[in-house]
Design a protein around this nucleic acid. Structure first.
Lengths: 142, 142
DNA sequence: TATAGTACGTTATAGTATAACAGGTCAATT
DNA sequence: AATTGACCTGTTATACTATAACGTACTATA
């Protein structure tokens, strides 16, 4: 497995990745732009270019159902052990906004199996489950 | 199982649904608007209102990863036997644009199982697999 | 007649994303 | 040294996606 290239990040890419990482949750491109205006980022293309670069390497993910971006939860420990092709599943709490990223082999294999049945060769998957997280459930049950 | 209400569609809802159905594939909201301008639909809210109404009843689905809308493949035969909460999986061919909608219990159960492990209560799922369809593969292999 | 609910049409605006152009840096090659 | 090419950068303008908010009209029911 190749180590993620957290070393050769350019200034802009680093700024965007750091902002997402310290946010601890999803941010929109324009929220990132607002946060990074002080650091010299002024226009959307600067943000989108960084996001594209980071996403291609699996360091960030786009949440398609919310048009938001999130730092890969696994990139820190082992350099993006979940590949950039998107076999991860996101559980998004609609109550608190928390997003849980999991690598679930059972789901991945079920998708691969269905694809095979169809004669379809998968390239990238978007798997996003909306609902209510455990902590919001227990808070709401009080 | 309740029959889908294809009878009590308003004029606008019917126009949008028919356009999507006869398209046989995904259309963007603005493509729909262009197509339906002759029938009197002039502004985006008219389209989006119809899409929202239809989606709530499972007659159309939104493809989050492409910002497009597609008629439910199962609505015709049995009134949306796949519920509006989104347990269906879409396989999108990036080569030809074809979209295959399938109701895969194995995937649905794998998602439900993972959710249960997390103590997460799912509400709606977005499951979209990009890749290459069988027919494009055989064409490309020639 | 009120009243509420729903659908409708319209204008304006918000939010998301990219095309296209210009300049800067740096290393490899000529 | 000069040239080239690859890549990163900044900027303007624009395209694409979606909704807020207003006013109207047509039911159905009280």
């Amino acid at each position: 497995m190749s180590m993620a290239a957290t070393a050769d990040l350019t200034r802009n890419n680093r700024l965007v990745l750091d902002a997402l990482t310290s946010a601890g949750g999803p941010l929109s491109a324009y929220q990132l732009l607002d946060q990074l205006r002080d650091q010299g980022l002024r226009a959307p293309p600067q943000i989108y270019r960084a996001l594209k670069w980071l996403a291609q390497r699996g360091l960030v993910h786009k949440l398609e159902s919310t048009n938001a971006y999130i730092a890969c939860a696994h990139a820190k420990c082992c350099g993006g052990h979940v590949d950039a092709r998107g076999t991860t599943v996101f559980f998004l709490c609609d109550a608190c906004g928390h997003v849980k990223e999991v690598a679930d082999d059972v789901i991945a294999m079920a998708v691969a199996s269905e694809a095979q049945t169809l004669g379809f060769v998968p390239d990238a998957s978007v798997l996003e489950v909306h609902g209510t997280c455990a902590s919001c459930l227990s808070a709401g049950a009080a």
